[in-house]
């Protein structure tokens, strides 16, 4: 299956397809080579919706928000991998390479999808991973690096979760976002295990109460609200006399964050 061929086929039927979609004909034509097969249903679905006038809310806005977060994560891991002596060789290096690879793939996927829908991907911001000096040794101290990684992954999970409802009008885009969301959660789980193995406290793969397990109070907004034990008006603690503790009740549901909350969390890492 080749994306360029599909566009060419459409062009034969509808010569204005490129103009309808974005007018950036050369950009569209260049996708074919880059976009992976799994991206196609999503890219095409969005493209057609946009081109033929079916409204879909502010889906491009949501995708650009996601792209900004993925730029942050991708550059964070790429910088860490390039920092000599930061990540121990072996399992740790392998895991960070896996995670970094996923984040880079998410960047490519989102850029492709946004462009294919006739919109412009936001540019990559300049990042300051010390957050203005808050984490000065983020790329020289393994423990600090892992703490910031956990903060980013747990934020990512909450950010995607908070946007799911805004993507409801497009099944393909929603499914793609959900399929990224769970990968971020897998990352978060692994980074948390890496921190436990690195003797950075009794960090569990899941979030207990609103505990960050990180010394810096700056990360607390990432965890505020996670202590919630009421879902859809139902109290989960000891539900149906099950013996579910308040800790377990908070752990077993991850909570969303709104876009504004996420942007204020990642704001210190973005150079204005």
């Amino acid at each position: 299956m080749n994306f360029s061929n599909i566009l060419n086929e459409i062009e034969k039927i509808d010569p204005e397809v490129y103009e309808r979609t974005s007018g950036r004909r050369h950009l569209l034509k260049s996708f074919g080579a880059k976009v992976a097969v799994a991206a196609l249903p999503f890219a095409l679905g969005s493209l057609f919706k946009k081109a033929y006038g079916q409204t879909s809310g502010d889906i491009p806005g949501v995708l650009n928000f996601a792209l900004t977060l993925e730029y942050l994560e991708a550059e964070f891991y790429a910088t860490a991998i390039a920092s000599n002596g930061l990540i121990p060789s072996g399992a740790a290096s392998g895991a960070i390479a896996t995670i970094g690879g996923h984040e880079a793939a998410h960047v490519n996927f989102l850029k492709t999808a946004i462009t294919a829908s006739g919109n412009m991907p936001v540019g990559k911001p300049n990042f300051d991973f010390t957050a203005g000096g808050l984490f000065p040794d983020v790329f020289s101290n393994y423990a600090t690096f892992l703490a910031v990684a956990q903060a980013f992954e747990d934020t990512g999970v909450r950010a995607y979760k908070g946007q799911a409802g805004n993507l409801k009008s497009s099944n393909d885009v929603l499914t793609a976002a959900l399929n990224i969301h769970s990968v971020e959660a897998r990352h978060a789980s692994h980074i948390r295990q890496m921190r436990k193995n690195n003797n950075q406290g009794n960090v569990k793969p899941w979030i207990t109460g609103n505990q960050s397990g990180i010394g810096s109070p700056a990360v607390q907004p990432i965890y505020d609200g996670e202590e919630n034990t009421t879902q859809a008006g139902l109290q989960i603690t000891n539900i149906n006399s099950s013996g579910v503790t308040a800790d377990a009740a908070s752990e077993c549901f991850d909570e969303p964050l709104e876009k504004q909350q996420v942007m204020s969390i990642v704001g210190p890492f973005i150079v204005p």
Binding site: H181, P205, D254
Partner: peptide
């Protein structure tokens, strides 16, 4: 939809943990 999202990320945290118990690094 949001409730399903709240549950699925916890399942993903479980999945990664179990996978790492079997073979560290196989979380995803």
């Amino acid at each position: 939809l949001l409730l399903a999202g709240k549950i699925v990320s916890v399942e993903a945290r479980h999945a990664a943990y179990i996978r790492d118990l079997i073979s560290n690094g196989s979380f995803a």
